[in-house]
Nucleic acid binder design. Structure first.
Length: 203
DNA sequence: CCCTGATTCGC
DNA sequence: GCGAATCAGG
């Protein structure tokens, strides 16, 4: 495939619309996102200022942030300045990587209204203190949840259970998971709590 | 380990 | 000019 006028135009259009390089490549066909990006640069429109920065409906990575773009023009202002130091420091402390144990699939449906013993319910924030912010987020996204069944879960679907396993009203969130984690962003927010103020832990 | 764009460099 | 490989970031 080559960059015909038509293809270039479509590229320009989609790029200015804020479509990602991979999306454009998919649409064009016969090219990779690398090819698209390369072309974009050669066309000199890497700075998405074609026209309308119309935020596409499904644009996961809005990038409206201004881009100062320091040019190497007057870079000799500070002769003795430190050149690099780009790595301030990673996060002070990675929060505890402890997920609520995944619930086995063999949930035995007892009578409804009876909670199966030994089956930790979906981490209900009842007693625990979770940021109301995160909770609101969860309530919000649970409306959009895919409501998957156990069998529909994949490595990339949020495995957060919703509802009572003993009833029909039970499903898994199913939204795209956050990288690594077993849950979507919202559920990660309530799942990975830095361990509440449990004072001592003798053993 | 899914994605994003940016850059390099042999072709 | 092209784009795979690679880099840097979320």
């Amino acid at each position: 495939m080559s960059w015909t006028d038509e293809r270039v135009e479509l590229l320009k259009k989609m790029w200015s619309e804020g479509q990602s390089a991979s999306q454009i490549a998919k649409e064009l066909g016969g090219v990779t996102r690398n090819a698209v990006i390369g072309k974009v640069h050669r066309l000199g429109l890497s700075n998405r200022s074609g026209a309308a920065p119309a935020p596409a409906a499904a644009k996961p990575e809005p990038k409206p942030a201004p881009k100062p773009e320091v040019k190497p023009a007057a870079a000799e202002a500070k002769p003795a300045a430190k050149p690099a130091a780009a790595k301030p420091a990673p996060k002070p402390a990675e929060t505890a990587e402890e997920a609520p144990a995944e619930r086995p699939s063999n949930v035995t449906p007892i009578r409804k209204a009876i909670i199966p013993a030994g089956q930790p319910l979906p981490p209900q924030p009842s007693a625990n203190e979770i940021s109301p912010e995160a909770l609101a987020k969860v309530n919000e996204i649970e409306k959009k949840a895919k409501k998957l069944t156990l069998l529909e879960l994949t490595e990339r679907t949020c495995k957060w259970p919703v509802g009572d396993p003993a009833t029909e009203d039970f499903w898994f969130c199913g939204l795209p998971v956050q990288q690594g984690k077993p849950y979507c962003e919202a559920h990660v927010g309530v799942a990975f709590q830095p361990m509440s103020n449990r004072r001592d832990r003798r053993r």
